[in-house]
């Protein structure tokens, strides 16, 4: 047993590859989190729709996503849909769509739990001032729900980030793909994937740090308490 990390670390082309992979992983995760959040907003809203079909469809969608593996969803989005509908996108676009669909289900459940924490006093006061339900939702309920569930949203985001390595399976040049490439050249699998693990952890910590800063920025009223 000999550990030879230097075989990776002394090669600037490998390091660059890892850096590029990490950047793509981060970019895709962050973008998917934003689009997923937008979809989650619609999904969580649909759960309160007057039309019962809409409520059921949203609930079924969320349950289905949460109870099936990401990789199956990913392969369906990357290989199933394009053959069925006859389109071809770049790999990263398939990955982005799959991650968006996946993230949205988890986020929408968290949002929903957040809405429940905003008291009826708040909505009643808003109604008494003449605000319409839509305005009440966006101006009063949503900001408070996001603030209350922010820690859950952050840990869910980190958790989802750790699963994004599967997009390498459809050919996206993410961090995992970079690792697989270096592994195929060096056969130093343990060193490569241990390094990758550390990079993933480091990135998680950076996300956590960044999102904590954002929290203090966004929810000054809460920290002031």
């Amino acid at each position: 047993m000999d550990l030879r990390f230097f075989e990776i670390y002394r090669r600037s082309d490998y390091l660059l590859l890892l850096l590029e992979g990490a950047a793509l992983s981060a970019a895709l995760t962050i973008t998917a989190a934003l689009t997923g959040m937008a979809l989650a907003l619609a999904l969580s809203g649909a759960r309160y729709a007057r039309l019962s079909v809409l409520r059921h469809v949203a609930a079924a969608y969320v349950e289905f996503i949460r109870n099936t593996p990401l990789i199956v969803q990913l392969f369906f989005v990357a290989f199933g849909l394009p053959t069925l509908l006859g389109y071809q996108w770049p790999f990263w676009a398939h990955a982005l769509l799959a991650l968006t669909l996946n993230f949205s289900a988890y986020f929408s459940e968290i949002l929903r739990s957040g809405y429940a924490t905003v008291g009826t006093g708040q909505t009643e006061a808003a109604a008494a001032l003449g605000l319409k339900p839509r305005q009440t939702f966006f101006k009063i309920v949503l900001p408070q729900a996001v603030a209350k569930t922010y820690p859950s949203l952050v840990s869910q985001f980190i958790f989802l980030f750790l699963t994004t390595g599967v997009i390498a399976e459809i050919g996206v040049n993410d961090l995992t793909q970079a690792g697989k490439f270096i592994d195929s050249r060096t056969f130093r699998s343990f060193e490569v994937f241990f390094t990758l693990t550390l990079i993933y952890i480091l990135m998680s910590l950076s996300f956590k740090g960044g999102l904590a800063v954002l929290q203090r920025r966004l929810f000054r009223w809460q920290v002031a308490r």
Binding site: M1, L162, T163, G165, F193, L196, T197, S204
Partner: peptide, 23 residues
Amino acid sequence: FFQSAPLLMLLFLFGLGVPRLLG
């Protein structure tokens, strides 16, 4: 550590890494 490490990486480590490391 094991909550922060991606499952996929653990699989690579045990499926490829450890065998190659120990020969």
